[in-house]
Simulated assay, not measured.
Amino acid sequence: MRHKFSWVNNQRTKKHSSMALEAWYMEENEEDKRLPHHKNPKEFVSLNKLAEIGILYWHLNPKNYENDEELNKIRETRGYNYMDLLDLCPEKIENYEEKLRNFYTEHIHADEEIRYCLEGSGYFDVRDKDDRWIRIWIKGGDMIILPAGIYHRFTLDTSNYVKLMRLFKGEPVWTAYNRPQEAHPARQEYIKNVVENSGIALEAH
């Protein structure tokens, strides 16, 4: 098993919290998935709440990503030796609609998913401990880490463009395991270390 977990203080998930990204509970309906899907009234989710389900967050300077000491420190500390860039928009991606449908199909990964938004914006949807959808709106400078085993999906917003940095430990493996995956080792470890430990932030490494 590659995935080990250790408990950390919530403060480590709140780098530059004054620049916090926006997140909220979703209203599930048949409207365009690229719309915000706010509940009425709106129900926002704090960084502490995201930390409770294992999500880490930093706000960095996207205009200086090639020489950013803070980004380099994160990569070194967490062992992210692989990096690539992804421009996601209709003009630059073959089979764009098909890929977007795949991204929006609920799934897990056997490893962390690390995404750093350099330009544009988009939505990561994640399940909370009660299986409710939380929509996370990432914009330029937002870097989030989704733990292995968390159910999630991704879509662009109405801007139809995002430029993402993807980080990984070792050789990249982008395999998605569509729900249900309750027997998957990464899902079982996530349940054990996050869902069954209410209120405790977690860091994968």
Rank of each mutant, 00 (worst) to 15 (best):
D157E: 06
R115D: 07
R127I: 04
Y151N: 09
A148V: 11
K139P: 09
H152C: 01
D130A: 10
L118H: 06
H109A: 09
D125H: 14
W133H: 02
D142L: 09
F154P: 04
Y123A: 06
M143A: 11
Y123G: 07
V126A: 05
C117T: 15
W133L: 02
S121K: 12
R115M: 03
G149P: 06
H152Q: 05
L156S: 06
I145K: 05
D111F: 03
I136T: 08
F154T: 03
F124Y: 15
I144R: 06
W133T: 02
K139V: 07
C117R: 15
R127C: 08
R132F: 05
E119P: 14
N160C: 03
I114N: 15
G122D: 09
N160M: 07
R132D: 12
P147W: 02
L100H: 00
R153E: 02
N160S: 02
Y116K: 02
T155E: 00
I136W: 05
F154R: 00
G149E: 04
D130N: 13
D125V: 13
G140R: 03
D130Q: 12
D131I: 04
Y161R: 02
L118A: 11
R132T: 04
E112K: 15
P147E: 05
M143I: 12
Y123S: 06
R127L: 08
M143H: 04
D157S: 08
H109R: 11
I134T: 01
R101M: 06
A110V: 11
G122M: 11
T158F: 10
K163W: 00
V162N: 00
L156N: 03
T155G: 02
E113A: 11
I150Y: 02
I150A: 01
Y161W: 03
L100M: 14
G122H: 09
R135L: 01
G120M: 10
R127D: 12
V126P: 02
V162E: 00
I134F: 01
K139R: 15
P147S: 06
T155R: 07
R115E: 05
D128K: 01
D157L: 08
R115W: 03
A148M: 07
S159R: 00
S159G: 07
F124V: 13
I134C: 03
G149W: 05
I145V: 11
G120Q: 09
T105S: 14
H107D: 08
T105Y: 14
L146R: 09
I108M: 12
D130M: 09
E112H: 15
D125A: 13
